[in-house]
């Protein structure tokens, strides 16, 4: 039941903010649409309903969002800006192990890696990501993980695993 409520709520919020109005007509159609869409899609979107009952996961996600968008992104951008001017690059593809189990955690790690400039996930196989990296400081998977995705993974495991 919880999954239908949560998915419906997301649809409701997106619908109302996109329509940009809180008139009775918008709210009435939003209720119908969120009911229909969550009935159709919730079973594909939510695998483990119990995790939705743990609100601290959401708090960690919000904290991570702000930390990622400000500090982590800023550092990564500054690094790439510096490398653009100095052309001090050593590009290559490294193998990075992932321990997170759930697909949402993995997607968050992948998105975080790709969205920071300088690193792009190009493939995923078994328990490894293949990351195209602007400056390969070490080809060793564990060393590379420390430099690329360890922080992301710690957060992702707390939020989704």
């Amino acid at each position: 039941m919880m999954k239908y409520i949560v998915v419906g709520l997301i649809v409701f919020i997106v619908y109302v903010s996109f329509a940009g109005s809180t008139s009775p007509y918008t709210l009435a159609t939003a209720t119908i649409i969120s009911g229909v869409l969550s009935a159709l899609t919730a079973k594909y979107l939510v695998v483990d309903e119990r995790k939705l009952m743990e609100p601290w996961r959401l708090l960690v996600l919000i904290y991570y969002f702000f930390k990622y968008m400000t500090i982590i992104e800023f550092k990564a951008h500054m690094d790439v800006v510096k490398r653009t001017f100095t052309m001090d690059i050593k590009p290559g593809i490294v193998k990075v192990p992932v321990n997170a189990k759930s697909r949402y955690a993995r997607s968050l790690i992948m998105g975080s890696i790709t969205n920071t400039p300088g690193t792009v996930v190009v493939d995923e196989k078994d328990d490894y990501f293949y990351v195209n990296w602007i400056y390969v400081s070490s080809p060793d998977p564990l060393e590379a993980k420390k430099a690329i995705s360890e922080e992301f993974e710690n957060f992702a495991v707390k939020i989704f695993d």
Partner: peptide
């Protein structure tokens, strides 16, 4: 899902 909400 987001596209579908916006489309609606």
């Amino acid at each position: 899902l987001l596209i579908a909400s916006i489309a609606a």
